[in-house]
Design a protein around this nucleic acid. Structure first.
Lengths: 80, 80
DNA sequence: GCAGGTTATCCCATATTAGGTTATCGTTAC
DNA sequence: GTAACGATAACCTAATATGGGATAACCTGC
């Protein structure tokens, strides 16, 4: 049990990333492939076992094909 | 020597955070105080010895009084 | 209930982080 | 030029997090 697994802001962020991935219809394996990382990487950041720094987040947003700014705005609104 | 200390995107991000802090006229000690962290925390993320995850970044932006979205946009533009 | 596809867990060596302490740097005053 | 300070960097090490291949657990449809 690593990080702020419980901090609601992290929970919101994770839920948002997982939801966006599903919304665009990609599997963890596909996202991982685009990121050149193992599937466990995606699983981990979606479940809070690993955190994403800002640059990593931009990479994830890019391979998901989502707007990184709009998505952070969603997060801000959620946790506001 | 930790992280992607050399990846230009991380370098840009660090430079941006340090520049914004100086622009708003705060010292590392002051920022650290607002974050309830030691001064070395601020020094570390500004020099790439430690990374900021997305939630931590939002905290930093908040205590700096800067717009988190606009700042990430600046980063995106810089590294585009 | 089996096959396939998808996601979660394991494992644990390696890497990063925390944070108090101390050193270094820069500037100003005397 | 040097003492005094404020500011930032560097140090140290126990505690924590990460990497990633392998495997287990979950679905869902048939």
């Amino acid at each position: 049990m690593p990080n702020p697994l419980h901090d609601p802001r992290y929970a919101s962020f994770r839920a948002l990333l997982a939801a966006e991935r599903e919304r665009v219809g990609l599997t963890q394996v596909e996202v991982a492939g685009r990121l050149r990382k193992p599937q466990s990487y995606v699983s981990k950041y979606e479940r809070g076992e690993r955190r994403l720094d800002v640059v990593e987040y931009l990479d994830v947003a890019r391979v998901l094909g989502i707007d990184p700014l709009a998505t952070i705005k969603k997060l801000i609104d959620k946790i506001a």
